[in-house]
Structures are given as structure tokens and as C-alpha cells.
Design a protein around this nucleic acid. Structure first.
Length: 209
DNA sequence: TGGCAGATTTTA
DNA sequence: AAAATCTGCCAA
């Protein structure tokens, strides 16, 4: 039951600490830019670096799934931080979230885009495309690319098979963080809770900046 | 290049 | 009926 694998140590990556998840959710979202998300399945490993995400809050945020209390769908949001919340949307796609805030609160960060790092061939097969900038440039796309669905709901992200890792140098010196309103919602559109790496070609195009 | 139908779960 | 989406098809 090792927490870290040799390959992770070599690259100096590690799971996020308990303390990390004690920050406000918007701060967590910002700090997740540059982190690695890795999913290992029978088909192999697929990994990407987070370049776009959104915070969903429990107070004064009607766009949050947890805004009207707990339901079977959103139950993972009320569970421990550092776990996954995967939901199905528009009859077709899964969206992946990192649960934040203390147990019982109901907050999360929606991961909207990744820069593919490893397992690119596998991702291309799953996504049926060979355009790398189209593999993970949207919340529904990245779950297909990584092979994430309901079976990956409510998993502890510090362990295999689905891991969220902090890297030694999380953002490159020239990378700037952009902030905007969240995408695809009608309520609380204007809240500055979307974070992305400016100019990164893997950020969702639908964004309009 | 831009708009729209369609895939169909969960909740209101 | 609308949603934290994306694709393919169609018309210019």
C-alpha cells in the first residue's frame, strides 16, 4: 500500500495534503492549475495537466449542484475533500470534479481542461481524434480521454487508480492565470470563479475567454 | 463559420 | 423542461 510510486518520486510529485483542502474553494481551484490528473486502467495510463477549472460554492451560488441540498447525485460533494464527484450530463457526458471544503459542506472544483502529458495514443483512441488540442479541451472531453465515468465517482484522489498530484514546479514562470465567469451556466454567470492558464491551447474553446 | 438537432440522467 | 456538453450536419 505505497502512497507514492517510484515514477512519481522521480518526478517529485505527490498527492495534495489534507491542509491544502482547508483553503477556500476558489483558492484551491486557482492552485489546481498545473496539477496532474492520472487515471490508470487495464488499457494503460492517461495523464494530463490541469489548465482550466471552476469553483462551485455552497453559499450564494445557485449554479452549484449542492445549492438546494443533498440528493443522491450530489452526495459525493458532501463527502470528504480530495475525493471525486462525477456526474452525468446532457445524456452523453460525464464531468469530473474534485470535492473541496470540509465534510458536509458541498463544494467542488470542476476540471474543465487538461494538457495531455502521457498516454496520448490511448486518449486519441478513446476520443476518436488525432488532434491533441481537441483531446481534453472541455469537461466532457477529458473524461472520455481519461476513461472516467460513474465507476470513478467518489474515489480518494490520493490513491490509484485515479490520482491528483502536485508537481514540483506547478506553473511555468511565463504562465499567467486568467479569471472569468463560469461557462455553460445561467445563474451566477458573472462570479469570477473560472481559472485558466492564459494562452494555453488546451483550454476549452467554447470559453470565449 | 456559425447555428442547431440530438444524445437522454437528474432534478425541479 | 432545463442543465457545470459536444459532435456532426447543414447552409452560406
Amino acid at each position: 500500500m505505497r502512497r507514492l510510486r517510484l515514477s512519481d518520486c522521480a518526478k517529485n510529485t505527490r498527492p495534495f495534503s489534507r491542509r491544502f483542502f482547508e483553503q477556500p474553494t476558489a483558492e484551491i481551484a486557482r492552485a489546481l492549475l498545473g496539477a496532474e490528473l492520472i487515471h490508470v486502467t487495464r488499457d494503460g495510463e492517461a495523464a494530463g495537466r490541469i489548465v482550466e477549472c471552476e469553483a462551485y460554492l455552497s453559499d450564494c451560488d445557485p449554479a452549484c449542484h449542492a445549492a438546494r441540498g443533498q440528493t443522491p447525485r450530489n452526495a459525493p460533494m458532501f463527502g470528504p475533500p480530495g475525493h471525486s464527484y462525477v456526474y452525468f450530463i446532457y445524456g452523453m457526458y460525464y464531468c469530473f470534479n474534485v470535492v473541496t471544503a470540509r465534510k458536509g459542506t458541498g463544494e467542488a472544483v470542476l476540471i474543465r481542461a487538461l494538457e495531455p502529458l502521457r498516454g496520448i495514443d490511448l486518449m486519441c483512441r478513446r476520443r476518436k481524434t488525432s488532434t491533441v488540442t481537441n483531446l481534453c479541451s472541455g469537461p466532457g472531453k477529458l473524461t472520455v480521454a481519461l476513461g472516467i465515468s460513474k465507476e470513478q465517482n467518489q474515489l480518494d484522489l490520493s490513491k490509484e487508480p485515479l490520482r491528483l498530484l502536485q508537481t514540483r514546479q506547478i506553473l511555468k514562470p511565463e504562465e499567467r492565470i486568467g479569471v472569468s465567469g463560469r461557462i455553460g451556466i445561467s445563474a451566477a454567470k458573472e462570479l469570477p470563479l473560472r481559472f485558466y492558464i492564459e494562452g494555453n491551447p488546451h483550454v476549452s474553446k467554447y470559453s470565449g475567454k
